[in-house]
């Protein structure tokens, strides 16, 4: 059989057409993508989640994705400068909460970026008291505030750390209007500062996390660093997805005893306050929609394969992929819920 030039061309075209769906995923994307994150720490949950996603996307799309922990302010600047799709941003609820709390220079992410798919949840946001604290439960704290006792809560203001504190004040106000004034913030910096505030007896309650504080809850009660969980803000649905063995010596069952509905911090008359710290992507508003679509589709395929879930779970995160449109609606709804209670509690 003679192989004519036409036959060769036809064969080559057929191969090219068949290969197109596989190559299409990556061809919209630049070869090198920079994933800036809203944290400047490589030891925190934002970097961990970004690394897991970046690895998976790199493998799936065949492009280089590098995670740069530049912090929120620089990340938003970098995102605003680059509409080519070479810079994407990954952050969590802090990115809209800081705007709701009026932190200077915070953008409105729903107006100034394209909010992308959600990635995962850190179910660890928690509140703790010293091991020898008189407060055994959130009920005790709200009752103390009602009785006129001052309860000092160490938080990092303007975001995820503060939202639970706002919820406490909201619950106190619902229980006895005016008692919310007895729940006062002790503004600190990072987790080390919050722990230190407790050890210095400057705070009665501190914001922390299961990951960062669990070992302190295992210390003997007479140890000066010993603490107890008093509230975990994650939804029971999220906690139920965590590994059954939990983290350290605290099992999933133990964790559920500190979360809603076992611990009630009312948000409305019908509903308890819960908060899942969710990670999601953001894009420059002028980014080519095909690039965003490529990433969204790739994530859908990665989560369908199922391997990424194991990586998230092994680091004590809950996989939480929501496609672009669904994610936007979901995050906007969270934003609106929190906006209501934050604005209600703003000083006159």
């Amino acid at each position: 059989m003679n192989i004519s030039r036409r036959t060769l061309l036809t064969a080559a075209s057929t191969v090219a057409l068949l290969a197109q769906p596989m190559a299409a995923a990556a061809q919209d994307l630049p070869r090198n993508v920079r994933m800036v994150i809203g944290s400047s720490s490589t030891g925190g949950d934002t970097y961990q989640n970004a690394s897991i996603l970046a690895d998976a996307l790199s493998d799936h799309l065949g492009v280089n994705i590098r995670v740069d922990p530049v912090g929120a302010s620089e990340a938003f600047k970098a995102l605003a400068r680059d509409s080519r799709g070479t810079t994407i941003m990954m952050h969590h609820d802090q990115s809209y909460l800081q705007e709701l709390y009026g932190v200077e220079g915070s953008p409105d992410i729903f107006a100034e970026t394209i909010v992308g798919p959600t990635i995962s949840v850190n179910p660890g946001n928690a509140y703790l008291v010293p091991a020898d604290s008189p407060y055994e439960s959130m009920e005790d704290i709200l009752a103390a505030a009602e009785a006129g006792e001052r309860v000092r809560v160490a938080i990092q203001p303007g975001g995820v750390s503060e939202i639970g504190f706002t919820a406490m004040r909201n619950a106190a106000r619902m229980r006895a209007p005016g008692s919310e004034e007895n729940i006062v913030a002790v503004n600190t910096g990072d987790q080390a500062d919050k722990n230190q505030a407790m050890w210095d007896d400057l705070a009665d309650v501190i914001n922390g996390s299961i990951q960062a504080n669990e070992q302190f809850t295992q210390m003997p009660p007479d140890d000066p660093t010993a603490m107890r969980f008093i509230w975990i803000t994650a939804t029971p649905e999220t906690l139920n997805q965590a590994p059954e063995e939990g983290l350290g010596e605290t099992t999933r069952e133990d964790m559920l005893t500190f979360a809603a509905p076992a611990v009630s911090v009312p948000m409305t008359d019908e509903e308890d306050f819960t908060f899942d710290k969710e990670f999601f992507l953001m894009f420059n508003p002028d980014t080519d929609p095909a690039i965003i679509e490529t990433i969204d589709t790739a994530m859908e395929e990665i989560y369908a394969e199922g391997e990424i879930q194991d990586r998230f779970l092994s680091s004590f995160f809950t996989p939480d992929y929501r496609p672009m449109a669904e994610a936007q609606e979901h995050l906007q709804s969270k934003n609106d819920d929190y906006e209501t209670i934050i604005s209600d509690l703003k000083p006159e």
Binding site: S41, T42, Y47, Q48, A192, N195, L247, G248, S314
Partner: peptide, 26 residues
Amino acid sequence: LGIPGDSTTALLIGAFALQGIQVGPL
């Protein structure tokens, strides 16, 4: 304590975190 003493040891926490190891008093 799980608290880094300087900027470089803050990066080391990342190595523990990436391996899913808790750093703290235990």
